[in-house]
């Protein structure tokens, strides 16, 4: 377990009368893959957006690397933390390379043109995600899977130490899903990247994450850490969080069903 990355202390968030997060307490550590799981509407994305500094209307205390999120300079924060949404919808005709180069913005103070270094990093990010051949194509012309890979390349061009991912493969086919998780897995090892991932795909979360935070109705209901390469997932826990019936087979797999 690494040193604390995010320290979440009694964090709540409401949209008008709707309480989206309630008194969350948790410490997320450096260098880990943390999965935030739970059903739709549990507050997963809200939590991720708060951690990414994209949502500011929360109460409580939250610090990133020992400094309160309220005092972090947005640009310095973006030099360390990158955010990849479910999908990126862009109206205007930017090329994939231009999209990736945008990731260099937090590292340039006021410069009008990108430096040679920025171009090199963008090139490397395109290579890492296997998008070199798409570089001069319009982003709007790419398929959903290609767009997500280019979006990932743009986030990687920020050279982040922390990457926040909001269901990054929700809209992708199997091949692109596996490709993205392979890239993330490799990067996490090579660059000691900390990953925080929102998903409702339990299978994926089980394989990919070191730790799982279960959210339901805006509350943290369970916090599991991987031991001996598995999570101590139980039928009752799954039933409680997702509101479905889960029966464990002898093989360790769960048979999931709706109702009885």
């Amino acid at each position: 377990m690494g040193s604390p990355l995010f320290t979440i202390n009694q964090v709540s968030c409401r949209f008008d009368d709707l309480r989206v997060l309630q008194n969350l307490d948790c410490v997320i550590s450096e260098g880990e893959v943390t999965g935030i799981v739970g059903p739709n509407g549990a507050g997963k994305t809200t939590l991720l957006r708060i951690l990414g500094g994209l949502l500011k209307s929360w109460e409580g205390e939250l610090s990133f690397r020992e400094n309160s999120m309220r005092v972090w300079d947005q640009r310095l924060f973006a030099q360390q933390v990158a955010y990849l949404p479910q999908r990126t919808q862009i109206t205007f005709p930017y090329s994939a390379r231009e999209i990736v180069l945008m990731g260099r913005l937090p590292h340039q103070s006021g410069a009008f043109f990108e430096r040679a270094e920025d171009h090199a990093i963008a090139e490397e990010s395109l290579e890492l995600t296997g998008c070199t051949h798409l570089a001069e194509r319009y982003f709007t012309e790419l398929s959903g899977g290609e767009q997500q890979l280019v979006g990932l390349a743009s986030a990687l061009a920020q050279l982040p130490q922390v990457l926040l991912l909001d269901e990054p493969t929700a809209f992708l086919d199997l091949r692109h899903q596996l490709q993205i998780y392979r890239i993330l897995r490799d990067l996490q090892k090579e660059r000691a990247l900390s990953l925080i991932l929102v998903t409702h795909d339990l299978n994926l979360a089980e394989n990919f994450c070191d730790r799982l935070l279960f959210l339901k109705d805006g509350k943290l209901v369970e916090d599991l850490r991987k031991e001996n390469n598995t999570f101590a997932l139980t039928g009752p826990l799954i039933e409680k969080v997702f509101g479905i019936t889960a029966q464990k087979e002898a093989s360790g797999r769960f048979i999931l069903s709706y109702g009885n």
Binding site: Y94, L105, Q158
Partner: peptide, 20 residues
């Protein structure tokens, strides 16, 4: 104008790249 590029790609897109 450089910041306008990231803004035209989306508010979250801009904010997560350090733009106020």
């Amino acid at each position: 104008s450089r910041y306008l590029n990231v803004l035209s790609a989306g508010e979250d897109w801009a904010a997560s790249r350090g733009v106020q």
